[in-house]
């Protein structure tokens, strides 16, 4: 059964509150998981578990963490993601807004890329496929 955007946001919000110990008013569509909500690397595993349970979906690691692209010399030169790399990331993560990252595509900037809105669109792409 398809879920509305509001239903998806509500479940994502609840999952993030549990995983990160944040208040519901902090979990806005624009909030970044790392910068605004304080997610650390281990929290992403927790978030994956909670989203899988909340939406009854499977989340392969590479879909949310494209480390294979970001560590591939074919797509990264001198710590900066190349145009080919950006294209690959867009293909892998069509639900993510990469516009800010494209302006300064250093690999180190990728960690603070994902927003709550990205997560909602990702989940939506899975549950409403």
């Amino acid at each position: 059964m398809a879920l509305t955007d509001e239903e998806i946001f509500s479940k994502v919000q609840s999952s993030l509150e549990d995983a990160l110990g944040v208040d519901d008013d902090e979990v806005t569509m624009d909030a970044t998981l790392v910068g605004d909500l304080g997610a650390e690397s281990i929290d992403f595993l927790d978030i994956v578990f909670k989203l899988e349970k909340a939406f009854d979906i499977q989340i392969p690691r590479e879909e949310l963490s494209p480390e294979d692209i970001l560590t591939n010399s074919q797509y990264v030169q001198d710590g900066v993601v190349t145009d080919d790399g950006i294209a690959e990331l867009k293909k892998r993560m069509p639900w993510a807004d990469l516009s800010d990252f494209e302006a300064d595509p250093k690999v180190q900037n990728f960690g603070n890329l994902l927003t709550v809105g990205d997560l909602c669109r990702y989940v939506g792409s899975k549950v409403n496929a």
Partner: peptide
């Protein structure tokens, strides 16, 4: 056992 992933379990 609640859930398992290649990276962990709950």
């Amino acid at each position: 056992l609640d859930a398992v992933q290649p990276d962990g379990g709950t």
